[in-house]
Protein backbone atom coordinates (compact mmCIF):
# COMPACT_ATOMS: atom_id res chain seq x y z
CA UNK A 1 0.00 0.00 0.00
CA UNK A 2 1.49 3.33 -1.05
CA UNK A 3 1.20 6.69 0.75
CA UNK A 4 -0.90 7.92 -2.21
CA UNK A 5 -3.33 5.03 -1.71
CA UNK A 6 -3.86 6.13 1.89
CA UNK A 7 -4.97 9.57 0.78
CA UNK A 8 -7.33 8.74 -2.06
CA UNK A 9 -10.36 9.80 -0.11
CA UNK A 10 -13.83 8.37 -0.43
CA UNK A 11 -14.01 8.93 -4.19
CA UNK A 12 -10.83 6.96 -4.79
CA UNK A 13 -11.76 4.23 -2.37
CA UNK A 14 -14.00 2.37 -4.79
CA UNK A 15 -11.37 2.08 -7.51
CA UNK A 16 -8.78 1.09 -4.92
CA UNK A 17 -11.16 -1.58 -3.66
CA UNK A 18 -11.52 -3.00 -7.16
CA UNK A 19 -7.76 -3.07 -7.70
CA UNK A 20 -7.11 -4.70 -4.38
CA UNK A 21 -9.91 -7.21 -4.82
CA UNK A 22 -8.29 -8.77 -7.85
CA UNK A 23 -4.91 -8.68 -6.07
CA UNK A 24 -6.57 -10.42 -3.11
CA UNK A 25 -8.00 -13.15 -5.35
CA UNK A 26 -4.56 -13.65 -6.88
CA UNK A 27 -2.73 -14.01 -3.55
CA UNK A 28 -5.46 -16.26 -2.18
CA UNK A 29 -5.22 -18.49 -5.23
CA UNK A 30 -1.48 -18.58 -4.63
CA UNK A 31 -2.17 -19.74 -1.06
CA UNK A 32 -0.54 -16.64 0.55
CA UNK A 33 -2.90 -16.08 3.46
CA UNK A 34 -0.60 -13.58 5.18
CA UNK A 35 -0.52 -11.26 2.20
CA UNK A 36 -4.27 -11.60 1.84
CA UNK A 37 -4.81 -10.47 5.43
CA UNK A 38 -2.42 -7.56 4.94
CA UNK A 39 -4.43 -6.42 1.93
CA UNK A 40 -7.66 -6.61 3.94
CA UNK A 41 -6.11 -4.63 6.81
CA UNK A 42 -4.79 -2.02 4.42
CA UNK A 43 -8.21 -1.60 2.84
CA UNK A 44 -9.74 -1.20 6.27
CA UNK A 45 -7.21 1.48 7.15
CA UNK A 46 -7.81 3.42 3.94
CA UNK A 47 -11.55 3.25 4.50
CA UNK A 48 -11.29 4.64 8.02
CA UNK A 49 -8.96 7.41 7.07
CA UNK A 50 -11.15 8.44 4.17
CA UNK A 51 -14.16 8.45 6.44
CA UNK A 52 -12.43 10.52 9.11
CA UNK A 53 -11.26 13.02 6.55
CA UNK A 54 -14.70 13.41 5.06
CA UNK A 55 -16.29 13.94 8.48
CA UNK A 56 -13.56 16.40 9.28
CA UNK A 57 -14.17 18.43 6.13
CA UNK A 58 -17.88 18.31 6.76
CA UNK A 59 -17.59 19.63 10.31
CA UNK A 60 -15.11 22.27 9.31
CA UNK A 61 -17.50 23.41 6.59
CA UNK A 62 -20.33 23.43 9.09
CA UNK A 63 -18.28 25.44 11.52
CA UNK A 64 -17.46 28.02 8.87
CA UNK A 65 -21.10 28.18 7.81
CA UNK A 66 -22.26 28.78 11.38
CA UNK A 67 -19.62 31.44 11.84
CA UNK A 68 -20.55 33.32 8.70
CA UNK A 69 -24.26 32.99 9.53
CA UNK A 70 -23.66 34.43 12.99
CA UNK A 71 -21.64 37.25 11.47
CA UNK A 72 -24.55 37.98 9.16
CA UNK A 73 -26.90 38.18 12.13
CA UNK A 74 -24.51 40.49 13.86
CA UNK A 75 -25.24 44.13 13.12
CA UNK A 76 -22.50 45.88 11.20
CA UNK A 77 -20.06 48.13 12.97
CA UNK A 78 -19.80 45.92 16.00
CA UNK A 79 -16.52 44.62 17.32
CA UNK A 80 -15.68 41.17 16.05
CA UNK A 81 -12.64 40.41 18.14
CA UNK A 82 -13.18 36.80 19.32
CA UNK A 83 -14.00 34.03 16.89
CA UNK A 84 -15.86 32.04 19.49
CA UNK A 85 -18.10 35.06 20.02
CA UNK A 86 -19.76 34.27 16.72
CA UNK A 87 -22.87 32.99 18.50
CA UNK A 88 -22.99 36.30 20.32
CA UNK A 89 -24.59 37.90 17.27
CA UNK A 90 -27.71 35.85 17.82
CA UNK A 91 -27.89 36.72 21.48
CA UNK A 92 -27.65 40.36 20.42
CA UNK A 93 -30.55 39.84 18.02
CA UNK A 94 -32.68 38.54 20.91
CA UNK A 95 -31.62 41.44 23.06
CA UNK A 96 -32.56 43.93 20.36
CA UNK A 97 -35.97 42.38 19.96
CA UNK A 98 -36.42 42.53 23.72
CA UNK A 99 -35.56 46.18 23.54
CA UNK A 100 -38.24 46.73 20.90
CA UNK A 101 -40.81 45.38 23.37
CA UNK A 102 -39.43 47.60 26.11
CA UNK A 103 -39.43 50.67 23.91
CA UNK A 104 -42.95 50.19 22.54
CA UNK A 105 -44.20 49.59 26.07
CA UNK A 106 -42.67 52.85 27.25
CA UNK A 107 -44.04 54.77 24.28
CA UNK A 108 -47.50 53.26 24.68
CA UNK A 109 -47.57 54.38 28.29
CA UNK A 110 -46.50 57.86 27.25
CA UNK A 111 -49.33 57.98 24.73
CA UNK A 112 -51.75 56.78 27.39
CA UNK A 113 -50.46 59.43 29.81
CA UNK A 114 -51.40 62.04 27.21
CA UNK A 115 -54.78 60.41 26.67
CA UNK A 116 -55.41 60.49 30.42
CA UNK A 117 -54.46 64.18 30.55
CA UNK A 118 -56.71 64.90 27.56
CA UNK A 119 -59.59 63.05 29.19
CA UNK A 120 -59.12 65.21 32.29
CA UNK A 121 -59.35 68.28 30.04
CA UNK A 122 -62.54 66.89 28.53
CA UNK A 123 -63.95 66.48 32.05
CA UNK A 124 -63.09 70.12 32.62
CA UNK A 125 -65.00 71.09 29.48
CA UNK A 126 -67.99 69.17 30.79
CA UNK A 127 -67.81 71.10 34.01
CA UNK A 128 -67.48 74.40 32.12
CA UNK A 129 -70.54 73.46 30.14
CA UNK A 130 -72.46 73.23 33.41
CA UNK A 131 -71.38 76.75 34.36
CA UNK A 132 -72.33 77.92 30.89
CA UNK A 133 -75.84 76.64 31.46
CA UNK A 134 -76.16 78.93 34.51
CA UNK A 135 -75.10 81.95 32.47
CA UNK A 136 -77.46 80.97 29.72
CA UNK A 137 -80.50 80.99 31.96
CA UNK A 138 -79.55 84.55 32.91
CA UNK A 139 -79.56 85.50 29.21
CA UNK A 140 -82.96 83.89 28.94
CA UNK A 141 -84.33 86.18 31.64
CA UNK A 142 -82.79 89.28 30.06
CA UNK A 143 -84.09 88.40 26.62
CA UNK A 144 -87.60 89.51 27.53
CA UNK A 145 -86.34 92.93 28.57
CA UNK A 146 -84.01 93.76 25.67
CA UNK A 147 -85.14 93.75 22.06
CA UNK A 148 -81.56 93.24 20.79
CA UNK A 149 -81.17 89.92 22.62
CA UNK A 150 -84.17 88.31 20.94
CA UNK A 151 -83.41 84.81 19.63
CA UNK A 152 -80.03 84.86 21.35
CA UNK A 153 -81.08 82.35 24.02
CA UNK A 154 -82.25 79.68 21.58
CA UNK A 155 -79.20 80.08 19.39
CA UNK A 156 -76.84 79.85 22.33
CA UNK A 157 -78.69 76.79 23.61
CA UNK A 158 -78.19 75.15 20.21
CA UNK A 159 -74.48 75.99 20.28
CA UNK A 160 -74.14 74.54 23.78
CA UNK A 161 -75.79 71.34 22.65
CA UNK A 162 -73.45 71.03 19.67
CA UNK A 163 -70.46 71.71 21.82
CA UNK A 164 -71.53 69.00 24.27
CA UNK A 165 -71.80 66.52 21.40
CA UNK A 166 -68.30 67.49 20.25
CA UNK A 167 -66.97 66.84 23.73
CA UNK A 168 -68.68 63.45 23.75
CA UNK A 169 -67.19 62.56 20.34
CA UNK A 170 -63.78 63.70 21.53
CA UNK A 171 -64.05 61.42 24.55
CA UNK A 172 -64.90 58.47 22.29
CA UNK A 173 -61.93 59.23 20.02
CA UNK A 174 -59.58 59.42 23.00
CA UNK A 175 -60.85 56.05 24.19
CA UNK A 176 -60.10 54.58 20.76
CA UNK A 177 -56.55 55.96 20.94
CA UNK A 178 -56.22 54.24 24.30
CA UNK A 179 -57.50 50.91 22.99
CA UNK A 180 -55.25 51.20 19.92
CA UNK A 181 -52.26 50.92 22.26
CA UNK A 182 -53.05 47.22 22.50
CA UNK A 183 -50.84 46.87 19.42
CA UNK A 184 -47.99 46.86 21.93
CA UNK A 185 -49.31 43.67 23.53
CA UNK A 186 -49.94 41.99 20.16
CA UNK A 187 -46.57 42.89 18.64
CA UNK A 188 -44.84 42.14 21.92
CA UNK A 189 -46.24 38.61 21.96
CA UNK A 190 -45.17 38.05 18.35
CA UNK A 191 -41.68 39.37 19.04
CA UNK A 192 -41.39 37.14 22.12
CA UNK A 193 -42.08 34.13 19.93
CA UNK A 194 -39.32 35.18 17.55
CA UNK A 195 -36.98 35.61 20.51
CA UNK A 196 -37.79 32.07 21.65
CA UNK A 197 -37.10 30.79 18.15
CA UNK A 198 -33.79 32.63 17.88
CA UNK A 199 -32.78 31.27 21.28
CA UNK A 200 -33.61 27.73 20.18
CA UNK A 201 -31.67 28.10 16.92
CA UNK A 202 -28.82 29.55 18.92
CA UNK A 203 -28.64 26.61 21.31
CA UNK A 204 -28.90 24.14 18.43
CA UNK A 205 -25.97 25.87 16.76
CA UNK A 206 -23.99 25.73 19.99
CA UNK A 207 -24.70 22.00 20.11
CA UNK A 208 -23.60 21.55 16.51
CA UNK A 209 -20.41 23.48 17.14
CA UNK A 210 -19.75 21.35 20.18
CA UNK A 211 -20.22 18.24 18.07
CA UNK A 212 -18.03 19.65 15.31
CA UNK A 213 -15.28 20.40 17.80
CA UNK A 214 -15.37 16.82 19.09
CA UNK A 215 -15.22 15.38 15.58
CA UNK A 216 -12.39 17.70 14.67
CA UNK A 217 -10.46 16.59 17.72
CA UNK A 218 -10.93 12.91 16.89
CA UNK A 219 -10.07 13.34 13.23
CA UNK A 220 -7.07 15.42 14.23
CA UNK A 221 -7.91 18.24 11.82
CA UNK A 222 -7.97 21.08 14.29
CA UNK A 223 -8.99 21.67 17.87
CA UNK A 224 -11.87 23.94 18.82
CA UNK A 225 -13.02 24.89 22.25
CA UNK A 226 -16.16 22.96 23.10
CA UNK A 227 -19.21 25.03 23.90
CA UNK A 228 -21.83 24.29 26.49
CA UNK A 229 -25.22 23.22 25.33
CA UNK A 230 -28.59 23.84 26.85
CA UNK A 231 -31.45 22.71 24.71
CA UNK A 232 -34.73 21.15 25.49
CA UNK A 233 -37.65 20.67 23.19
CA UNK A 234 -41.08 20.94 24.73
CA UNK A 235 -43.91 18.63 23.76
CA UNK A 236 -46.59 20.23 21.60
CA UNK A 237 -49.83 20.87 23.44
CA UNK A 238 -52.79 21.46 21.06
CA UNK A 239 -54.12 24.35 23.14
CA UNK A 240 -50.73 25.70 24.13
CA UNK A 241 -50.71 29.51 24.05
CA UNK A 242 -49.47 30.63 20.64
CA UNK A 243 -49.87 34.35 20.87
CA UNK A 244 -51.47 36.52 18.21
CA UNK A 245 -52.38 34.83 14.94
CA UNK A 246 -50.89 36.31 11.79
CA UNK A 247 -53.36 38.25 9.68
CA UNK A 248 -54.18 36.58 6.38
CA UNK A 249 -53.04 33.18 7.57
CA UNK A 250 -56.49 31.87 6.69
CA UNK A 251 -56.35 28.82 8.90
CA UNK A 252 -59.86 27.34 9.30
CA UNK A 253 -58.92 26.42 12.87
CA UNK A 254 -58.38 30.03 13.77
CA UNK A 255 -61.14 32.48 14.66
CA UNK A 256 -60.60 35.65 12.65
CA UNK A 257 -62.51 38.14 14.78
CA UNK A 258 -64.81 38.55 17.73
CA UNK A 259 -67.84 37.51 15.65
CA UNK A 260 -66.19 34.15 14.88
CA UNK A 261 -65.50 33.63 18.57
CA UNK A 262 -69.10 34.49 19.47
CA UNK A 263 -70.49 32.20 16.74
CA UNK A 264 -68.29 29.31 17.83
CA UNK A 265 -69.22 29.64 21.48
CA UNK A 266 -72.94 30.03 20.84
CA UNK A 267 -72.90 27.03 18.47
CA UNK A 268 -71.56 25.03 21.39
CA UNK A 269 -74.24 26.35 23.71
CA UNK A 270 -72.03 28.62 25.78
Amino acid sequence: MTEADLHRGLDGFESLLQEKASELVTVLEGGDLNSALTIINDLQQVKHLAFYNEVGYLTRGLHEAIKSFSDDVKVQGETNDEQDDSIQGMADASERLGYVIELTEKTSHETMDRVDKSLALVDKMDEQSGRFADLLSMVGQLEAEFEGLRGGYDRTCQLKKESEQTVKDLRAELTEILVAQSYQDITGQLIRRVITLVTQVESSLVQLMDMAAKVERISGLSVEKPASNTNQKAKKDPIEAEGPQLAGKNDPDVACDQDDVDDLLSSLGF
Partner: peptide, 30 residues
Protein backbone atom coordinates in the same frame (compact mmCIF):
# COMPACT_ATOMS: atom_id res chain seq x y z
CA UNK B 1 -56.54 37.11 24.74
CA UNK B 2 -54.90 36.98 21.32
CA UNK B 3 -55.31 33.18 21.31
CA UNK B 4 -57.79 32.54 18.50
CA UNK B 5 -57.70 28.86 17.62
CA UNK B 6 -61.04 27.05 17.75
CA UNK B 7 -59.67 24.38 20.06
CA UNK B 8 -58.42 27.06 22.41
CA UNK B 9 -61.73 28.90 22.53
CA UNK B 10 -63.58 25.63 23.17
CA UNK B 11 -61.06 24.63 25.84
CA UNK B 12 -61.53 28.00 27.55
CA UNK B 13 -65.29 27.62 27.49
CA UNK B 14 -65.00 24.10 28.90
CA UNK B 15 -62.63 25.34 31.60
CA UNK B 16 -65.44 27.68 32.63
CA UNK B 17 -64.84 31.20 31.32
CA UNK B 18 -67.96 33.40 31.19
CA UNK B 19 -66.80 35.43 28.20
CA UNK B 20 -64.04 35.37 25.59
CA UNK B 21 -62.73 38.50 23.88
CA UNK B 22 -59.96 38.30 21.30
CA UNK B 23 -57.29 40.93 20.98
CA UNK B 24 -57.21 43.39 19.42
CA UNK B 25 -60.67 44.40 20.58
CA UNK B 26 -62.67 47.60 20.46
CA UNK B 27 -63.92 49.45 23.52
CA UNK B 28 -67.48 48.61 22.45
CA UNK B 29 -66.82 44.85 22.34
CA UNK B 30 -65.14 44.75 25.73
Amino acid sequence: TAEAKREQIIAAAQAGVNGYVIKPFTAAVL
